[in-house]
Amino acid sequence: MRPVESWLYATDKGLYCAPGDFYIDPPRPVDRALITHGHADHARSGHGHVLATHETIEIIKVRYGVGSAATFQIAALGSAQRIGDVRVRFAPAGHILGSAQIVMEHAGRRAVVSGDYKRATDPTCRPFEVVSCDVFVTEATFALPVFRHERAEDEALRLVQSIARNPERAHLLGVYGLGKCQRMIALVRAQGYDRPIWLHGALVALTELYQNLGFDLGDCRPASTAAADELRGGLIMCPPSALMDRWSRRAGEDPLRVFASGWMRVRGRARQRGVELPLIVSDHADWPELLDTIVETGAEDIWVTHGRDDALVHQLSLMGRRARALALIGYEDDAE
């Protein structure tokens, strides 16, 4: 049997599957790309042929335009297809809407590239599916034992309670624009918050896409259309970069700054950003989820991509597994 590393390996264009002649989430334009999900460091424009889930393709079209790849092909979750000499299947990853793991079988071995993933429930995407495999390629964004995320529902409740306690102050919530934004909207709606939610311009198009795809996110409006007094005591969402920017001044004299991210587990990170209400909500697996998932896949070999590979590789070696860091260029270690 050919070992997996002889047919699936890192190149300067990204992770390459030789018998299928395709790249997975390549950071540079290639002829044939399989895309796990729509975040910008995984999905880029300019590829020849793109294979991804229906939702991921819709996200790519909103972000980069309908002509950002020569052809798009929908990968139906669960149904396998043959590409070259490889059997390929997409399985849900639970990270964001449309996110998928890519399952490859060749020469009697199965490899799974998980992309980014989480195990916690998320009303805006399908849950992670465990696929048993020989090689599991895992992310490691939060691969330190200090990262144990809180229950997202509890954190959303803290936000809604803070809004109720501070009727004079606008709550300015920093979120990653794709996934976290819409998940947080769904979470606060589930806590009974039914007032309009005001969106920074960078969040509007993707939120509309979710709504067009059938998610009920309630009344969401561009913040630019709000009268000044409408924002007082309200909930405004923006990308993290706008949280401290001049843009934030429209939220009034003294907005209460909130940031929803796995990084908020560490106080220094919250203080650094001047966040008054840190919410520990993440779309990435935390430390226990990473370890549980790796064990459940039964994989003998674990390849660790972007993030804290040092800690995870060490822990897996303590657990008697073969683990190594897979150096892939172009991914953001602390995107979220």
């Binding site: 330190l144 034992p145 144990r148 560490v266 106080r267 220094g268 804290r308 800690a311 060490h314």
Partner: peptide, 26 residues
């Protein structure tokens, strides 16, 4: 906790007491 993991975590968090509070087995 494993000493290597504790050290990596401590370096990341920057505060020993906080690191202990986050790593303490549940």
């Amino acid at each position: 906790a494993d000493p290597v993991l504790f050290k990596i975590s401590r370096d990341f968090v920057g505060d020993t007491a906080e690191t202990v509070s986050l790593m303490w087995p549940v």
